[in-house]
């Protein structure tokens, strides 16, 4: 009897712990079915198309692949895209930080209106965004005559493409930072000011370190969109080969001319950029959590 008592005590304990475990876990077949459906979905809609890009790109051999991505028009498109990104992303970073700062650290009239306007590019179709700039700066547009008289080209030139890209990517950084800065509040800034720091030093030493990972994350998303933007850029670019064609526009032209291998070759290049971006995003995610 005396020997059996401890055993009796341990058994219900074990039972309790497995019960607790079971409460959080679905039956095995449910888990496997759900996992299978999710994986199949991903495979069919994402992995398969991505792989097919690379297969089609190399369909006519490596020579065609390298020829098509080193073709002068392709190189010009790559260069233009990178130029646009190099201008639009930093401007977006500055605007995004300013907008998030203003919206979270101050109270003022019209705050909600500003918040809505920041979100507007998400709601407006990129084609409309492009058209707006044509209406403003095109030959028949509001400032068209003045621009023509002063020999400034915006539409069908680099400035127009940059403007359209900025418009479309505007919310990324601000949207990423606003909830973060709201959660952090303003007391650390107040502490800094009360310790005698100037506004700039407070921003540099206190605010920026606290938002750096959020900012970086927003910039990566912004960067991905800036590289891939098609609609708005298509309207303002004018599709001049070797001049105003970005990578997505170049791909479309090649595709329309039935040069599938070439089109997919450039597309594969963009996919690689996208994958690199995602990897960086994951590293940032992991870093920002570990800090």
């Amino acid at each position: 009897m005396e020997h059996s008592t401890p055993i009796e005590q341990t058994v219900p304990n074990k039972g309790a712990s497995t019960n607790k475990h079971a409460a959080l876990q679905e039956p095995r077949f449910v888990r496997y079915t759900l996992t299978f459906i999710a994986l199949a979905f991903l495979l069919f809609f994402i992995v398969l198309p991505l792989v097919s890009i690379f297969i089609t790109a190399f369909q006519k051999g490596a020579q065609v692949y390298f020829d098509s991505i080193t073709h002068p028009d392709a190189l010009s498109a790559i260069k233009l895209t990178l130029t646009v990104v190099a201008i639009a992303v930093p401007l977006n970073a500055i605007f995004g930080v300013m907008a998030a700062w203003v919206l979270t650290k101050f109270n003022f009239r019209g705050k909600n209106l500003l918040l809505t306007i920041v979100d507007l590019p998400f709601a407006v179709s990129p084609v409309i965004a492009g058209l707006v700039f044509v209406l403003l700066f095109g030959a028949q547009g509001l400032f068209g005559e003045w621009l023509f008289a002063n020999d400034i080209k915006i539409i069908f030139a680099l400035p127009g493409i940059v403007l359209a890209t900025i418009f479309v990517t505007l919310p990324f950084v601000a949207r990423e930072l606003i909830p973060l800065m709201q959660a952090q509040g303003t007391t650390e800034e107040e502490a800094s000011i009360s310790l005698g720091a100037s506004g700039f030093k407070t921003f540099w030493h206190v605010t920026l370190p606290n938002i750096k990972w959020g900012l970086f994350y927003g910039l990566i998303l912004c960067n991905a969109r800036a590289i891939g933007e098609f609609g708005a850029v298509s309207v303002v670019s004018g599709h001049i080969r070797g001049m105003t064609n970005t990578m997505p526009l170049h791909i479309e032209i090649l595709y329309n001319e039935y040069q599938f291998a070439a089109a997919f070759a450039v597309a594969s290049l963009m996919s690689v950029l996208a994958i690199i971006t995602l990897v960086i995003k994951d590293i940032v995610d992991w870093k920002s959590k570990s800090v």
Binding site: T187, E188, E190, S192, S194, G196, A197, S198, H205
Partner: peptide, 20 residues
């Protein structure tokens, strides 16, 4: 006067230490 010119030490309710 701006707070940074007042030479006041302020201890916040939830400390407001610089977390980084």
């Amino acid at each position: 006067h701006h707070p940074k010119e007042r030479n006041v030490g302020f201890v916040f309710q939830h400390y407001a230490l610089f977390r980084h």
